[in-house]
Write a protein that binds this DNA or RNA. Sequence first.
DNA 1: ATTGTAATTGAATATCATTCTCAATTACAT
DNA 2: ATGTAATTGAGAATGATATTCAATTACAAT
Lengths: 160, 160
Amino acid sequence: MGCILASTTYEEQFKNFLKKNNLKFTKERREVLRAITIQRDHFHAEDIYQQLRKQKSNVSLATIYRTIPLLIDSGLIKGTIYGGERVVYEKVYNKPHHYHMVCLNCGKIIEFICPDMEVIQNNICRNNIFLSTEYNLEIKGYCQDCRRKMMNEKKEQKIQ
Amino acid sequence: MGCILASTTYEEQFKNFLKKNNLKFTKERREVLRAITIQRDHFHAEDIYQQLRKQKSNVSLATIYRTIPLLIDSGLIKGTIYGGERVVYEKVYNKPHHYHMVCLNCGKIIEFICPDMEVIQNNICRNNIFLSTEYNLEIKGYCQDCRRKMMNEKKEQKIQ
DNA sequence: ATTGTAATTGAATATCATTCTCAATTACAT
DNA sequence: ATGTAATTGAGAATGATATTCAATTACAAT
Ligand SMILES: [Mn+2]
Ligand SMILES: [Mn+2]
Ligand SMILES: [Zn+2]
Ligand SMILES: [Zn+2]
């Protein structure tokens, strides 16, 4: 289990944040943090809980929910997709800013980077004297696979 | 109470949608629809309920929640801002597509139009063979007023 | 106008992600 | 080692939204 190398800086970042705010670096917080470094791109609060149970850790869901805002404020994760039944989070530390396409049929999330968009957004904020902390672009629709499936279903209907 | 002129096309649109789907144009649905035409830019489900109570209408909250998806599917409203405690809706019929800045301090919502962004989004969807039904850009941050207030508070702290 | 029937309604209840309460425990500065 | 404020888990609370069900209603066909 020697795969925690990359998380060292994660942990440093988190520790610094906690110290700065008179908060304690507890066993539970460390375990939540590590569970997150293991998660793939996008995850729910519940995913962290399941991850920890797999690892025989007994951190409660309450503590996970209490830790999430700390991880957000320390710049390690952020809430990405709202409006479903539960919030989707993702790691942001050392990851380039990007946007999302969400398939309404299969739920797939497609990421994309768009420097042009960033420029436009900065201009808009400057023009409106608005201090932005977060840009969030979400394109909802249907992915390539689902479009294919839907077209095939239509064909079959016509044949019958 | 002769101020329902502008809602005629709203009502037509809704009636057409309902007929197309074997749904009935009930007294309650008409009242919800009219309550919505009266709402200002952005509103919650609860706002509709309050509006109707003011007008001595007894449409239940359950019916309002059941009517909202119908209004969305008929192209009259859409959910705009998620992630707060409740969903923010807005009218979209005959309204140009636009984006939002949300102040994290006072909750103010600032709308803006951006044709350049639309072009970029269309390109991205084409490149990914993604069929978009909805673009949603939300910029979170702090509005001009709140920034002023925060700066003044800082000054006062220094003086004390 | 009457009738048949599927759609709709309000009231109450359920859902379910997230937050809160509180007594017991713990991190960590001194 | 000690003091104290922060933290924890368990369970209860919250609150927006969804669902159940028996009674009502819209409306197409007669
Ligand atoms: Mn992502
Ligand atoms: Mn708007
Ligand atoms: Zn898909
Ligand atoms: Zn503000």
